[in-house]
Design a protein around this nucleic acid. Structure first.
Lengths: 204, 204
DNA sequence: AGCCACTGAATGATGCCTCACTCAGTTTCG
DNA sequence: CGAAACTGAGTGAGGCATCATTCAGTGGCT
């Protein structure tokens, strides 16, 4: 039936199928949950045969890991780039927060996978933690410490704890947004969070 | 072989087995994750036969739900009781936060189930959300609004968002504590969070 | 013709749950 | 009082459905 490829005489570029499978997996995982998702579902959604999935991924778990790896890398790159654009530590944190919520807000399925599915096992959480998540927290912490040295933020605060608080608050906004029936914009929540957060950590 | 009951001439009180199964399930879920846990594992850990599990619970999922229901009910009762003991809204929030982290910090396995396993599916999250979690957030929000009316907290803040921020920050402390290799006390983190939080929301 | 991306039916493992059975303890009855 | 009948909590082997993964085969392309 639907077969876009058959309309082209040029073979689809390598990675085309891989991309389709990844996209399909994000959707299927988001709707059914990782453990309730069948590889066959992903294959059907991607418009390929079951076996094709295994030409691109080692296993079902490898698919989830790939989704995570790619997204985290993209997010970290974007955040680091954004941070270089401004000099004020407060503004840097605001940019990080905004980017964070914009990304998740732009792709609900991906957000569900991130906020819900990736947390469904300590095993993944450990990798999650070891891999990109720690780096992300470190970026927030470093930015905060920069502000402390500049005398902008209270020097008696533990930067590590501060970073977790900001991340936790943003994370909760994202999770709530996913679970909420109401449809609202996620990104603007960043400002409300930053308002309270910055007010709490700024040196008088 | 091992059969404590055979040493007693009195039949073990009803609910004894049920309690044993719940405890075993918390441990097994915490160590292997919900989906990787076999009902047989829980039965073995509880010292009962596979079939016995089904005399007390409708299904494997019902066990998880029971763990959640009971714990949330206990936590909410404790928090509500504590809130009545003090009058200052700031102190109320501090008590709620402290209780929150004390509870999770006192039972690592239960904490893992709560912070990790219960979030592993949108389905559970929705129930989670609908059930106790929403009530918990509402308690925080109501307390904050009380403080707003008393002129203690900034009146231009959305109490709903504020509640999510506080919850998110505490939640992140708990999740980090679970994943951390280092062993530290969780409860004292409450004060660090409250310090920043209250500083951020207090009316000047 | 030869290559290789792709296919999808077949396979084998897994694990939830059922149910026919056991037996310690209790009640009934002569 | 003792034996027989009964009860129901507890047991655990196995039915059965469910999938992740494999691999022999297909067909388009050079």
């Amino acid at each position: 039936m639907r077969s876009a490829r058959s309309l082209n005489n040029v073979r689809a570029p390598a990675g085309d199928k891989r991309e389709a499978i990844l996209r399909a997996a994000i959707s299927v995982f988001a709707h059914n949950g990782y453990f309730n998702s069948k590889v066959a579902d992903i294959a059907r959604e991607a418009g390929v045969a079951d076996g094709t999935v295994y030409l691109y991924f080692k296993s079902k778990e490898d698919i989830l890991r790939s989704i995570f790896d790619r997204s985290v890398e993209e997010a970290l790159d974007a955040a680091r780039k954004q941070v270089k654009q401004v000099s004020d530590p407060k503004e840097k944190l605001r940019q990080i927060a905004l980017l964070h919520l914009e990304r998740l807000g732009a792709d609900r399925d991906l957000a569900v996978v991130f906020q819900v599915e990736l947390r469904g096992s300590t095993k993944f959480m450990q990798e999650f933690s070891a891999a990109g998540f720690a780096e992300y927290l470190a970026l927030i912490r470093a930015t905060f410490e920069e502000g402390q040295r500049a005398g902008i933020f209270r020097s008696n605060l533990n930067a590590n704890v501060v970073a977790k608080i900001l991340f936790g608050a943003l994370d909760e906004m994202a999770t709530n947004w996913i679970l909420s029936k109401r449809r609202y914009k996620l990104a603007p929540m960043a400002d409300q969070v930053l308002d309270i957060f910055l007010n709490g950590v700024t040196a008088s």
